[in-house]
Amino acid sequence: MRAFITGTAGFIGYHLANHLIDEGWTVHGYDGMTDYYDVSLKVARHDLLRARAGFTATEARLEDNDTLMRAVTRAAPDVVVHLAAQAGVRWSIENPRAYVDANIIGTFNVMEAARQRGARHLLMASTSSVYGANTRMPYAETDKCDTQMSFYAATKKANEAMGHAWAHIHKMPVTLFRFFTVYGPWGRPDMALFKFTRGIYEGRPIDIYNRGQMWRDFTYVTDLVRGIRLLIDVIPGPPHTAVEGDSLSPVAPFRVVNIGNSEKVRLEDFIDAIEAATGRKAIRNYMPMQAGDVPATWANAGLLQRLTGYRPQTDIREGVARFVDWYRDYHHSEFDLKARRPA
Rank of each mutant, 00 (worst) to 15 (best):
D223L: 05
V81C: 07
M124H: 13
W298R: 07
H164V: 08
K195Q: 15
G260E: 08
A339T: 12
L122A: 12
H46T: 12
R280V: 02
H331Q: 02
L337K: 14
P295D: 05
P295K: 07
A282S: 11
L123P: 05
H82S: 08
R328L: 09
M172E: 11
R178W: 06
D223W: 03
L68G: 01
H170T: 14
D47C: 09
V225Y: 07
N95W: 11
G279F: 12
A102I: 09
E244H: 11
P185Y: 03
R328Q: 10
G227F: 13
Q290C: 08
D143M: 08
V110A: 09
K195V: 12
G237W: 14
Y37N: 05
L230S: 00
Y201C: 02
F323P: 04
I235G: 00
D66H: 05
L248S: 08
V80A: 13
A158Y: 13
A242E: 08
A343T: 15
A167W: 00
M33D: 02
Y330V: 06
F335I: 03
H15T: 14
G212H: 01
R255L: 00
V225P: 00
A87R: 10
N134G: 15
A343V: 08
V100F: 12
R266N: 15
I12R: 10
M162F: 06
N109D: 02
V243S: 01
G7F: 01
Y310Q: 00
A140G: 09
L41K: 08
R204N: 04
Q86L: 06
A140D: 10
L248W: 00
Y183P: 03
A113F: 12
T127E: 01
A282W: 05
L267C: 05
F55D: 10
Y14P: 05
D38I: 04
M124C: 07
A277K: 13
G88T: 09
P312V: 02
L224V: 05
E141A: 14
K264S: 13
D78F: 13
V174M: 04
G309T: 00
A125H: 05
A60C: 03
R311M: 00
A161P: 06
L123H: 01
A87I: 11
M33H: 06
I271F: 01
L304Q: 00
A153D: 02
V81Y: 08
K42L: 11
A153H: 04
I93V: 14
P239A: 01
P205V: 05
G88S: 03
N300E: 07
A343H: 09
H121D: 02
A242K: 15
G279D: 03
N95I: 04
M149Q: 09
L20W: 04
E318C: 03
G184N: 02
P205Q: 07
E59G: 12
V243M: 03
L16E: 06
Q313C: 11
T155E: 01
N159K: 08
T219A: 14
L303D: 01
T297D: 12
T197V: 11
V81R: 10
V324S: 02
W298D: 12
N285Y: 04
I21T: 08
E202V: 02
V324W: 07
N95S: 11
